[in-house]
Write a protein that binds this DNA or RNA. Sequence first.
DNA 1: CCTTGATCTGAACAAGCGTTCAGATACAAC
DNA 2: GTTGTATCTGAACGCTTGTTCAGATCAAGG
Lengths: 195, 195
Amino acid sequence: MARTAGSHSALTAPRIREAAQVLFAQQGFAAVSMRQIAAEVGVQVGALYNYTADKQSLLFDLMTAHLEDLLAALDARPLPEDPVAALEVFTRFHIRFHAERPDAVFIAYMELRNLTPDNFAAVEALRHRYEDRLTAILASGQQTGAFRIEDPRIATMAIIAMLTGVNTWFRQSGRLSLEDVEAIYWDMTRRMVAD
Amino acid sequence: MARTAGSHSALTAPRIREAAQVLFAQQGFAAVSMRQIAAEVGVQVGALYNYTADKQSLLFDLMTAHLEDLLAALDARPLPEDPVAALEVFTRFHIRFHAERPDAVFIAYMELRNLTPDNFAAVEALRHRYEDRLTAILASGQQTGAFRIEDPRIATMAIIAMLTGVNTWFRQSGRLSLEDVEAIYWDMTRRMVAD
DNA sequence: CCTTGATCTGAACAAGCGTTCAGATACAAC
DNA sequence: GTTGTATCTGAACGCTTGTTCAGATCAAGG
């Protein structure tokens, strides 16, 4: 019935997002309750509604924040003019960015079905913007003759699926460093499209 | 309170599995209720328990049936001795088999988190058996010099992620036939591992 | 110290969940 | 037609859900 001592919205808001992200990634959006998220944060369930309109908004905000960060981080890296060099930058960037946020990535790929149609459309638009960046690199390389690709759009889907697949098995504590993985996957990507 | 006219277990059992598969693929295991599945079949929720021990068993059975079908279908195809030819057979097989059962594939990849630890272990073992088949092809090719691969296990993960990714976009009604897609992906796969 | 606003608690609400099971009807065999 | 079995219905059980909101406490400012 009372405010928790030491409570402060600047602390609680990020803790809610973090708790939601971990639990959604571990168990899935529909399987996790708002009460579980609240317990993880250390508040009662009613407190969550000071920070999110509802459960659906919480998921949508997590997904769009991740995708907007992804796009912003990519935009912050000027891609080389040379398509081969640009593809290498993109490949390493994708692997590293995704490996550093496994929960957010997992949610962004796995929880699309739990979005309402409007939210789904908004998230798809962001995903397409990201995919378009790679398609542009591939189309440019196809045009200059640096790449031999039948269809840049399909090659985009293939490359992103392969690169994102790293997250299903890569562990920082594994026998390969992230640098090793980047090198191996860059080699495979390069050969996939090389003339 | 009474038996439905025309009811017959040989009809109801497959209908329950089919309804569960479609709904689990569309909405996710946790978001779908047993009542929804029953409604789709045309029975009351209590009737489902003549055919499945519980909701978790229903999911587990769908997943293992799919993976066992996958392994059996692969076993039914003698792979060529030549690693390159074997890899082509595997690639085309994987794409076709998966494209023909999008819901089952989707569930097998997306609903792992909803399995109990024991069930998860059993399903993982089946997935590893399938992955091992590709690793064996790649290791053989690496040994004979037909492939230049740094790590057959990682190449396996990369290839399967890429091939399974086809299911996220391919539609039978799309501008490309399944044959076209097989050809494009075989070309990319071959180049990824070629010496 | 008092006042105001911030931030939470705690319980309620309406609805739904997975699972069980007594009993009713349909079906098949004689 | 009778009997036994199959297959379901329908309701109950214990529990949980997402969301709301009146009110209690904490924090900050004057």
